[in-house]
Structure formats: C-alpha cells, structure tokens
Design a protein around this nucleic acid. Structure first.
Length: 725
RNA sequence: GCACCCUUAGCUCAGUUGGUAGAGCAACUCAUUUACACUGAGAAGGUCGUAGGUUCAAGUCCUACAGGGUGCACCA
C-alpha cells in the first residue's frame, strides 16, 4: 500500500496535479481518445456546449454548479465509451462588459466613451476581456471540468463572426430580417435599445391625472404622463361606450401648454371603458399601445416630443425640460387653465432597464428586427412555428417538463425581435450603406461604403452557439459528428433569451434541433435561502471553497439533492460534509489495499454465499444508479452512492470483514477460502464504487484508482463504467 | 389579471410508472484511539398544507381552498 494512504486525504495537494495529468494526456479531446484506441472510431457521439461564462469577472457558485453537473454528464458518457465532446468558450456579453469597462474608466479617469471614441474604447474592452478570460479559464479548470480546450471558442472571434454574418445574410435574403421604424424600448441611461425580455417592471407610486385638452373639448382623459400629451393626435374610446359615441369621428384643435395639437376622436376595442374616464389620449410616438392604435386608424406617428435623453423637444415652456420636470410644468399649466379635473394616487408598474435601472422611454426608432411570424420561403413555416414544434413534438425535452408550458406561453406572446443595439462592443451589424444602396453580409471591397453603426443583440450570436462552435458555416466533420448536441444545461432565467433563440437559429440554419434535452438547474442560494449577492456579502467564492474543502466536495455539495429547476441551498457545513466523505473513501481504500496486499486475485474466483449476496445487493445499486444517470437524475445517483459507500460499504461490510480478515488486536481463524472470498468482494466493491463516483468526485477517485490492483486503464477518467453482465 | 411551481421529521430537502414514509444536518443515549474523531452503534422524531374525489391501494392522480415563490402581461 502506498505511503500516502497513511495521511488524511489532502485535495489541495492532489487536484491541480491530477488535472494537469489529464490535460497532458489529451483525453478531454475525443479525437485523441480515438487515436489512442480508447474510444472506438464508430462509437456514438455525445456532446455538450458549455454555456459560455461572461468575460466580465470571476466565477460564482452558479458557474460552479453548471460545471459540476455538466462534467458529471460528460464523464459518465465518456466512461460509457461514447465519443464525448464538451466544448468550452467565453461570451463577450456586449452590454454587460462594455458597461463594466465604461464604469471603470469613468471612475479612474473621469472619461466617457464619447471622450475615448469607438476604436479606443474597444481596445480597452478587449484588453479587459482578455485578462478576464484567462482568470475564468483557470477557475473553470480548478472545478475539474473535462473540457476539450483545443476547441475553445469566443463569441466574438473570427469563426463566430463569419457565422454571424452568414446567418444575417441568409435571414435577410429570406425576408426575415428587416429594418423598420418601430416603437422600441429605449434606455436613456444606457443610450441603447433593449429587448422586451430585458425589461423589469418596478412598482412605484404615481399620480393619475384627469384633464381636458381645452375648455371646449368634450371628453375628459386620464393619464399618468401629462407631458406626453403635447404629442397627442387622437382620443380613443370603446365603440360601445354610450358616453362618447356621439363624438366619434369629430376633430378638434387646441393649444396645449404652448403646443398646437389636433385631436381626432376614434373608436378602438382595445380601450377599457372601466379604466379612468374610458378614453385614452393617443400619443403614437411614445407608447406601444398608442402606436398600434395609430396604425389601425391611420393616424400620424411622426410627432415626436421626447428625445433620446428623455428631454422635451417641443417649443414653448417645455422646451429642453426633462420628462419629470415637464410633467410638473404641464400639471401647473392644467391647473392654471382650470383643465385639471382630478388627481389620484395610484401604483403603477414602471418599465426599467434590467442592466442600468433607467426608466424606459418608448421611442420610434429605425432598428433591425427579426420577423417571427412571416412564412419562411421554401419552408412553409414561420420562425415562431420552428421554435414551437420541436418542443411540442418531444424532439426537444425540457427537464423539468413543466417549463415546457412556460416556454409555450412565451412563444404565444412573442413579438418581432429587435436585434440592433446602440453600443459599440459586439458584432457590428453586417450591413454597409452608400446612399440608397446597401450591401448585406460581406464587407464590400470598394471604398465609400459605411457600415451600420449599431451592434447586434448579444443573444443573436449566442443563438448560434451549438453550431458556430462546431465550425459552421463550413461543413465540418465536427458539425456532422456532434450536432445536434445532446444536452443544454443552463438556468431557467435564460430560457427565453437563449434557449429559445438557439432553437430558432438552429432550425433556421440547419433545419434541425440544437439539442435533444434541456436541463434547467435552479439558483444556488445561501444557507438562509437568500440569493447570493455583493450587497448582502453572502457570496461563497468557489475558488476559496475548493482550496479549503476540495473541488470534489464542492461538486458533491452542489449536486446531491439538487433537483432540476429547483433552487438549492449551500453552506460551508454541507461542503465540509462531503470533504469528510472524500476522506472516508480514502480510508476505505486504505483499509482494502492494506488488507489485500500481496493477494493473488487469480487464486480466488468464486465468492462464498454470504459475499455473493453482498455482490448481488451491489448489482442492484449499479442498475439503479445507471438508470438514474441515463435519465439525468444525477442528484439522486450521487445521494445513493454516498449513502451506500458510507453506510453500507464502510459501516457494515468493512466492519464485518474485520472478523474474517483479522486485525492487529483480534487475529482471525477464518479459512483461507473465506479470507480470499472477502478480499475479492472488497476489491470488487471498491473498484466499482470508484468508477461510479468518478463523474461526481473525479479527483479523489482518480488518485485512489492509480493504486488499485484492478487498474485497467491509464486513467479512471477513461475506464469503463460498471455494467451488469 | 393569467400561467406555472412549492407546501413531507426541529431545519434543509429527496421520494422515478400510484404499491410498507426516506436522506443530510441538528438534538438525545452510549461506545471508542480506530481503516477513518473528518469515527461507530442505538433510540427518538411524520394526520405528507386543508377539505373532498378516483382507486384494491394516494405523499404521488383529479377538484376546490389557503399560504409561499417564480414567470408573463399590464391602464392610458
């Protein structure tokens, strides 16, 4: 028995060394594994793409969870003999990264991005992204993740840029990408458009004002935004509202707070007669609902009264005022003119930008969109249908299944996807203009063309991730072999942002699903069930945790009992428990190795009936755990193994074996046959337990394996998963 | 407002196709310097949120209600 077993197991001395050995073996790469004759060339493929961590900072517990779960899937399949590929990568995370760097520059040098200019700012962001990338890769490795680093991708590198430009062109030519003037969600703070999904609603106290445009205007109107009323072109009422039917079709002129306005009374079914006065002042340019009403009634949508900085653009007393100041001014004016009829306190859901917290100002803007309802030429279906069908048919399975309903619900409410962003870091829109002419997809060779200033929503390029990482648009061997991928493992918070967009992109570009299974994990919370956050200071740093307890312990603590789609709690005590377990396993190995030293395994092939019963009992565990692994129930498999190894193998079987094998204090008079049977059993149980625990606790199992008499592969990582015969 | 999820031991949570209620932690009693104190043995702890229903059989399926959470929508 090697001397190392005389000491308690020390993960910090072991883990980095083993990871290095694995990496040097090249066996994270399925091609290398086939070359070395470990995987057969015609073995089925199994692939996962790692959801690329943002290059904005450090690894957090959510990353650690994702790495632990995926590495467990991957190591299991690798041991089952699949050509197993796990692709690493990082995400440029456009807005997130740019705002981190902008904030830093503002703080350190008091400069804005406009002071620096596009080129300079991009250089600074890239430098930050590179440093951040290196840190993250190092951290990913400490978790034991068996990623094929030879295939590492970045969402903004050359291959991915080619993929983005290619698909943009394909969608443009298919009539799915268009540029149009629409009401968008404008974030005045971030100075960019954001998608519907990036909005968070905040409940705030507000006032509902009831007023008339002028003394002779017949209908009172209620609003929370009096300042926008200088942009009104109509009043909409419900067609069946008896109070107002007499006025439908009539037009009125007024001077509203120094601004001349022309108001037409229209009827529209969208109006709720029960709310306010039952009449809506229609401001087409500054409200989604009003824009749609204006479209239906062919009203002017061109009167813009608020600009990108949320300031008033009209002449008169409101000129240049911020919207909130303008609101006060209009209310004062209404009061002085005797036009204000009522002022009520209400609570209102205000749209704010998820990232900056800025209050969203709906504005009409010339933006790029993806049309999700238009029929795709030659396909007879819309993108919406392409997103819906594979989940409906079961081609894609979402775990837990109830998220399928959430998914369908989202698709039903889906509107065209605004894909242009007014930030600088990201894939620049591949469109070039020269006067009226435009070129889409590939940059023109001649001079004089100007590229669109905007960049693409980061989810546009992320949507390509399953196949852009495999070399698309080239028809690569990787693409043929590993796509569709097997599992996408991620959090439910990006089900719409990302999962849905990946289905859209893959279905459009390749006419196939991007993955067969979506495994959604929950949020990792602290011991009290609170979200981990900087402001609470309750973050557990995965690096600090692994250095104190070992990556194996952290992985087990994250996986055991953590059912998909359910939030989990983690605490140092829990992690400590699994550090103890690693040590327990270590000592089981010590006991078994110590007691089977110089044992000729070929001398004993038959187990006696008592030991055979133990083996049969164990075979049930193998079958059970294997079934769990196949069904992605890793949280159950891990718990069962833990329980068996500690409370059956160690507490019962090892203890019983002492009487047979004898100890220093109590010599045994058992027969040689009984002893040999017991030794055979112990080696069998330890060997197979190491194999089954490996996907969960790769380091300690690998370290023990290197001293096993049953060692039949250079690394446990590529040894065979136990199968029943 | 609509949808979805959760409610099981003191705490945190599992419970797969309906088939004798489980784990970890904590607490209790005892043992022990041992493969391992990063230990072991034992005992205790439950009307499975409430009320109905289906079934030979319900923690599990159905209905209603209550409490907690999440997502979506949204009023001008």
């Amino acid at each position: 028995m090697p001397e190392k077993f005389l000491q308690p197991y020390d993960p910090s001395a072991t883990e980095s060394r083993i990871y290095e050995e694995w990496e040097q073996s090249g066996l994270f790469n399925p091609d290398e594994s086939a070359k070395q004759g470990i995987t057969s060339a015609d073995a089925p493929a199994y692939s996962i793409v790692l959801p690329p961590p943002n290059v904005t900072g450090r690894l957090h517990m959510g990353h650690a969870l994702m790495l632990a779960i995926q590495d467990t899937f991957i190591r299991y399949k690798r041991m089952r003999g699949f050509r197993t590929l796990w692709i690493p990568g990082t995400d440029h995370a456009a807005i997130a990264t740019q705002s981190v760097v902008e904030k830093q520059i503002k703080k350190d040098e008091n400069l804005s991005r406009h002071d620096l200019g596009r080129e300079q700012l991009l250089k600074r962001i890239e430098k930050f992204a590179n440093e951040s990338h290196d840190t993250i890769v190092k951290q990913v490795k400490t978790m034991g993740a068996s990623l094929d680093w030879t295939r590492e991708a970045f969402t903004l590198d050359e291959t991915r840029t080619r993929a983005v430009r290619t698909i943009f062109k394909l969608m443009y030519d298919a009539g799915l990408i268009y540029r149009g003037l629409r009401i968008v969600n404008w974030d005045p703070k971030g100075q960019t458009t954001i998608s519907d999904d990036e909005i968070v609603y905040e409940e705030r106290a507000a006032k509902l004002y009831t007023f008339r445009y002028s003394k002779d205007f017949p209908i009172p109107v209620a609003t929370t935004r009096p300042e926008t009323k200088v942009g009104d072109v109509a009043v909409a009422v419900h067609p069946d509202d008896a109070r107002y039917t007499a006025f439908i079709g009539k037009e009125y002129d007024a001077i509203f707070c120094d601004v001349p306005i022309h108001i037409k009374v229209v009827s529209d079914k969208e109006v709720d007669p029960a709310f306010g006065t039952g009449a809506i002042g229609v401001t087409p340019a500054h409200s989604h609902v009003d824009w749609d009403i204006a479209s239906r009634h062919e009203l002017s949508q061109e009167i813009i009264v608020i600009n990108e900085f949320a300031k008033m653009t009209v002449n008169g007393r409101l000129e240049g005022k911020k919207v909130l100041d303008a609101r006060d001014t209009v209310v004062e004016w209404l009061k002085s003119e005797g036009l204000l009829e009522k002022e009520e306190d209400i609570t209102q859901n205000v749209s704010t930008a998820e990232r900056t917290g800025g209050v969203i100002e709906p504005l009409p803007k010339l933006q790029w969109f993806i049309d999700v309802t238009r029929e795709i030429p030659g396909r007879g279906k819309s993108l919406k249908e392409l997103m819906l069908e594979p989940v409906q048919s079961g081609a894609i399975q979402i775990i837990p299944t109830h998220y399928e309903k959430t998914y369908f619900h989202w698709i039903e409410n889906l509107r065209d996807w605004c894909i242009s962003r007014q930030i600088w870091y990201g894939h620049r829109i591949p469109v070039w203009y020269k006067g009226e002419a435009i070129i889409v997809g590939t940059p023109p060779a001649e001079e004089g063309w100007i590229q669109d200033e905007d960049t693409l929503d980061t989810w546009f390029s992320s949507g390509l991730w399953t196949f852009s990482t495999l070399g698309w648009p080239e028809a690569t061997e990787d693409l043929r072999t590993y796509h569709p991928t097997d599992v996408l493992e991620t959090g439910p918070d990006i089900l719409f942002f990302w999962v849905a967009r990946m289905i859209l992109m893959s279905e459009f570009a390749l006419n196939t699903i991007p993955f067969k299974t979506v495994y959604l994990h929950g949020i990792v919370r602290d011991a009290q069930g609170r979200k981990m956050s900087k402001s609470l200071g309750n973050n557990l740093d995965p690096l600090e945790i692994t250095s104190r307890f070992g990556a194996d312990a952290a992985r087990m603590a994250l996986i055991v009992g953590n059912a998909p789609g359910t939030d989990s709690r983690i605490s140092e005590d829990k992690i400590k428990g699994y550090k103890h377990f690693a040590n327990k396993l270590w000592n089981i190995a010590r006991f078994v190795l110590e007691n089977t030293e110089n044992f000729d395994r070929s001398s004993q092939t038959e187990l006696n009936s008592e030991d055979a019963a133990r083996k049969t009992e164990y075979e049930i565990i193998i079958a059970d755990v294997t079934a769990d692994m196949e069904a992605y129930r890793v949280y159950l498999a891990a718990e069962k193994l833990y329980h068996y190894v500690w409370h059956q193998l160690a507490d019962v079987i090892l203890e019983e074996s002492k009487a047979i094998l004898g100890t220093v204090r109590t010599p045994s008079d058992a027969s040689a046959e009984a002893k040999n049977s017991k030794k055979t059993l112990l080696i069998y149980l330890l060997d197979n337990s190491l194999r089954m625990l490996h996907p969960f606790m790769p380091f300690v199992t690998e370290e023990i394996w290197q001293s096993m008499p049953t060692k039949d592969a250079k690394f446990l990582m590529v040894a065979k998963w136990p199968l029943l015969h």
